[in-house]
Design a binder for these strands. Structure first.
Length: 296
DNA sequence: AGCTTCGCCTGCTTGC
DNA sequence: TGCAAGCAGGCGAAGC
């Protein structure tokens, strides 16, 4: 049951982490026989074509920022990287040799339609053992990048991961900047992995207003980072936030939505002080804030 | 250079 | 009831 219905929801760090783990369990060790990508506009600039993956074996799958990183090894034992960003509505569907389809991320319609959305099925991997993996993305905000592992983060404009970042580094990133702290935290060049939901939740929990200038928020870098990590870790434990269009790898629902305290709760009473949660726009994104708990 | 706005894209919701 | 407009947002490009 959904406690609220906020409009479009995207896979963020915890959801991507969950999907990556599911993919690692599912496709690691399999050899790619053929790959097709029907929507060439999904290639990120500088990417190799999908044929480059043919004959590669998937070694492991992990998260990089808000994207999924496939570690591939070619027949000549060369390491290759495939990065798939799910954008807003991207998901994977895995079909085994017996024809059963299993959804690896996202759609409220659930198992009944898993794999049935062929209209938006842009990518298709066929493995040597007959299993298949599909990439489905109705809004096509996702991307594919194929290339070398070296310098991947720089190539993809990804700053350090929030779990690797040190408080001092965050202080330096925020310091001397006039932009709202929320806009800075969402900037993937500066920090890669934080998205709209979790930034709102983190700033609420740490009591910092999203519009606080970076230079002012810099003094709170430690608590902000600590809080963001705690929120993300909890969400990963709950396998992400299931809203309208997210479904975790085993087909079950993520459970973090019941833990959201401000996101999507505009008009409701703050759980701490009963003040009405406000919605504003910061950095072009819908932003939820308790004006009392997060004074500006 | 830093910061903001826009456009991409589609499906769902809202309003007339 | 039906249709158009509005909205959601990650990210890159363009604009200030």
């Amino acid at each position: 049951m959904l406690l609220f219905d906020p409009g479009g929801i995207v896979p963020e760090l915890p959801e991507v982490e969950t999907v990556a783990r599911g993919l690692d369990d599912t496709v690691a060790g399999r050899e790619i026989a053929t790959v097709t990508l029907k929507a060439p506009d999904l290639y990120r600039r500088g990417s190799r074509r999908v044929a480059w993956m043919r004959g590669c074996t998937v070694r492991r799958v992990e998260r990089i920022g808000k994207a999924i990183l496939f570690h591939l090894v070619s027949e000549a034992q060369h390491e290759r990287a495939l990065v798939v960003h799910l954008g807003m509505t991207g998901r994977f569907v895995f079909a085994d040799t017996r024809g059963g389809a299993r959804e690896l991320s996202g759609d409220a319609n659930g198992d009944a339609t898993a794999g049935a959305d062929t209209r938006h099925r842009h990518g298709r991997w066929r493995f040597r053992d007959g299993a298949e993996l599909y990439y489905v993305d109705p809004r096509r905000f996702g991307y594919f990048y194929l290339g070398a592992h070296e310098g991947l983060r720089a190539t993809l404009n990804m700053g350090p991961d929030p779990f690797e970042l040190r408080p001092r580094e965050l202080q330096r990133i925020l310091g001397g900047r006039s932009a709202p702290v929320k806009a800075l935290l969402l900037n993937q060049r500066l920090i890669s992995g934080l998205g709209n939901i979790y930034v709102d939740e983190s700033l609420y929990r740490v009591g910092v207003h999203p519009l606080t200038p970076g230079s002012v928020a810099a003094s709170n870098a430690g608590p902000i980072l600590q809080t963001a990590r705690r929120v993300l870790r909890r969400a990963i434990r709950w396998r992400g936030t299931t809203l309208r269009d997210y479904r975790s790898p085993d087909g079950g629902s993520g459970g973090f939505q019941t833990r959201l305290m401000v996101y999507g709760r505009d008009g409701e009473a703050c759980q701490r002080c009963a003040t009405t949660i406000e919605k504003l726009v910061v950095g072009g994104r819908g932003t939820h804030v308790c004006p009392v708990c997060q004074p500006l």
